[in-house]
Every structure is written in structure tokens, then in C-alpha cells.
Design a protein around this nucleic acid. Structure first.
Lengths: 231, 231
DNA sequence: TTGCGGCGTAAAAATGCCGTTAGGAATCGC
DNA sequence: GCGATTCCTAACGGCATTTTTACGCCGCAA
């Protein structure tokens, strides 16, 4: 099952492995870009700005380590190394050069996919400056005030947005009715908890995959609401 | 060469491997905390707040996966799994459960150290000053109003939560019936000690490992109740 | 043994909150 | 001004939570 369509860059000279990876990754819903050599890989990494790079160490033109260092020079994108070299020294070298993981050939697809998920998970969490929430099939960019769902833009009214922002400010924590009402409607409306119910439904309808069984806008009966995010 | 004296938690039942890891990690300048079983591991993870946890999957008391989920329930600390199980399925399971890396035994120390460096490198710093109670296999984040047990979220009703908070406020000390009733139900219900029995059972059912033999919600006959924590 | 008080357990009954819907008022853009 | 959007009000059914009610267990003392 795919996250919101991440782009993966595969830098690998062996055409067969490339084909194999392409189908496996595409089947998971990833968008795949391929480069057959180190030079091309560096160019593609810069131009496509993928969410993750899979790098073979044994490349024809120059060493995979240089690719890692090259990418690391300007981007923190996760790098998963794929290599036939199982020697410990090679692994240490690659990891210390900036790789995030090292998988030796032959490898199981399932494991590789799992490690890719881990790497993408990290990236999602480490982007602290840009506040982007991932709520199932919806994403919320608090800074840009942009909300999308399945790639399409979703429009939020001012109140809906303030409510969401208030919940997001205390991500994972319970925000009391009182807090929400004061933040969104002002201190004079602390009693009108029914506003919350209505607008909470709006948000759920717009952002939850299954609005009838909310997974992200969780109600804490008698207390308030909680926004849960999946990393 | 050491990072700035990070604390590492080793959860491993084999005493020999533990000793081996201790010396290897200490030689790198890490501070090492050790736990010999899963239960102890979860407690130590919460009380010592290490920068990273190394978890063996084959633990005697319960599965290492539960340790991973248990820690993930309240902390984003990096988790490196160490395991004799090389089956792909085991790896996928652990990684998807929230582990950041998976190293199979036998392993090279150098590789393990490199992978630890990677994990520490992109460690997202956890929330500062979190108050997390540890009650056996359950954890309680009072501020976020979040309770987990074996990694799964537990839902508390408002009264259950207030009762727990009241006990936690006087951690380790006896809280009288009178106090509890006044705090939770208000001064008019000081006679209904009956409520306490009912909700105390709810809390024990939800949080105690063995609700019939409570270890944390201790009753002081004729006086009140006491909350006992692990650290 | 028997009765009693404190405690634990269980399930039904009552309460109040919450989700949902629809329609009308206010506001904004044109 | 007019339409469209946004916001507020009101009502109802369902359900989580709370409260009530009832019973079994244990230790203790008469």
C-alpha cells in the first residue's frame, strides 16, 4: 500500500536488476526514476529531487561512495545502498559516508521495501521546519496553508483551518473543548461546544478516508479532540 | 570515535552478548544501560530516556516486537534490532513495527557501530521534559493524555483519567478515599467510596499486567489507594 | 460458626454528550 | 444588487460514560 506517491531514484547499472526494482517499486505505488550510471544518477538526483535514492555501489563510471557524498553535499534525502559487497568494511564506509541503510545482494524484495519505508518514515519526521502533516491520504502544509487529498487541493474555510491548526499545534495530544473554542471563536464562546461538533465533521468529511470512522480526528468524549498523525 | 556521550539501552537476555556489547559500546564512549528482559527493558527505556535502544528479538518474557511497539507508543527514539532470526518476514515485521534497523547475528561490531551512528545521526529529538509514568508494560503520558500498553493505545474515560492523575500527583503515597472523591467527583460525593472500587477496577483492568494481582494500583484497606511506579 | 464491614466484580439502567442533518442568516465577491 | 459561500441555529437519534443496583469473597470478631 502506497504512501502519497513518493518518488524513488534507482541508480543501478545492471539492466535486469533495474527492471526488477522498477516493477517491484511501482507495484507499491512509488514513482520510479532510473539512472544507469553514477554521473547520470547525480544529475537525476538534483533534477528530479526524489524522496529517496537507491544506490548500487558497483557502478561503471565511478564509485558509488562518491554518489553518496555527492548527494549528501546538498541534500539530506535518504540513501539506501544496494551492493554485492558484503565485506564489513564496505558497509561501514558507505554508512559513514552518509548512506542510511545498506542491503547486500541477493536481497529479499520485502526487506528492501520495508527498509525503504523506514527511510521514508525518517524523512517525514526530520523535516521539522516545513510542517507537513500526513493524515492517511491527505496532507496538510501548515505554513503554506495548503491541504491536499489524493493529490487534489482541498479548500478549507477560515474556521476549519484555524481549528485544524489548533489541533496540529498540539499534535497527538488532547486539546480541550475550552482551548479549541477560545483559540478559534474567542473567549466569549467557551460554552458553544456544538460548534466544534459541526466543524469537526466538516474536517473529517474533507480529510478522513472514512469520515464515519475517523482515524485522525479522534474525539475524547467529555474532554476534547486529538489529532493523530501517522509517520 | 564517540558522539557526545550518548546513552544507549541494551535489551538482551544473553549475558555474554551483553557483556560483549557493553565493552564495545563503552569503548566508543557511549554510556550503556542494560536490561535482561523485555519487561525491564520497557521500564528502563522510559526511566533512563536513552538516545537509542538496541533490542534483541528473542527475549524470554515476551516478544521483542512488543518492546518495539511499547517504546514507539511514546517515544521516537531510534531502535536497532539485534536478532538471530534471519528470515525475511521477521525483519519486515520488526521494521514495520517501528524499528529503525535490523542486524542479524552473528554480526560485525564495526557494522553495528556504523549503524548506530546512522541511527543517532538522524535521531529526531524527542519532546523535552515529557512526564511519562511507567507501570509495568503500560506507559502514561499525563500531559498528552496518552496511555499505551504493549504498544497499543488505551482509551481512558474522563473519570478514569482524573482518578489516575490524582493518584499520580501523589506518586507512591497513599491517597485517602476522601481526597480522591473530592478531587474526582467533587466535595459532595465524599461518601461514595463505592465509585472508587468500580473505577479502580477499570484502571487495573486496563493498565495492570495481572489485574487480579495489582502491582501498581495498591489498595490500602480502610484508608485509600496508592500508585506505585517502576522507576 | 455466624454476622459484619470493606472490597472486588458484574451487568443493567440512566444520563448526557456526540454525530449528523438540514435550513436559514450573514458575509463576501462580482 | 445578486449569487455563492460561509457561518450559525436547531433538533433528533445513537452511543459512550456514568450511575445505579446487586452479588460473591475474604478477614475478623463475637
Amino acid at each position: 500500500m502506497a504512501e502519497a506517491r513518493a518518488t524513488l531514484l534507482v541508480i543501478e547499472d545492471d539492466a535486469e536488476i533495474r527492471r526488477f526494482l522498477r516493477s517491484a517499486l511501482a507495484a507499491e505505488g512509488y514513482k520510479v526514476v532510473e539512472s544507469a550510471n553514477a554521473h547520470r544518477g547525480l544529475v537525476d538526483a538534483a533534477s528530479h529531487k526524489p524522496d529517496l535514492a537507491i544506490v548500487d555501489l558497483g557502478l561503471p563510471d565511478f564509485d558509488g561512495l562518491q554518489v553518496i557524498r555527492g548527494i549528501r553535499g546538498w541534500s539530506p534525502m535518504p540513501i539506501v545502498v544496494l551492493s554485492a559487497r558484503a565485506r564489513e568494511h564496505a558497509k561501514i564506509e558507505a554508512l559513514d559516508a552518509g548512506a542510511d541503510d545498506y542491503v547486500t545482494k541477493p536481497f529479499g524484495v520485502g526487506e528492501l521495501l520495508a527498509r525503504i519505508r523506514v527511510a521514508l518514515r525518517h524523512r517525514a519526521r526530520s523535516r521539522e521546519g516545513v510542517v507537513v502533516l500526513v493524515l492517511g491520504e491527505a496532507t496538510v502544509d501548515l505554513e503554506a496553508r495548503k491541504v491536499t487529498r489524493r493529490g487534489k487541493d482541498i479548500h478549507l474555510t477560515p474556521i476549519e483551518y484555524r481549528l485544524l491548526a489548533c489541533l496540529a499545534a498540539h499534535l497527538g495530544m488532547v486539546v480541550t473543548h475550552r482551548q479549541l473554542l477560545t483559540e478559534v471563536w474567542g473567549p466569549t464562546h467557551q460554552a458553544d461546544t456544538h460548534y466544534l461538533r459541526i466543524y469537526m465533521k466538516q474536517l473529517r468529511d474533507k480529510l478522513e478516508s472514512d469520515p464515519l470512522r475517523p482515524r485522525h480526528f479522534v474525539t475524547e468524549t467529555g474532554v476534547g479532540y486529538r489529532l493523530v498523525c501517522d509517520d
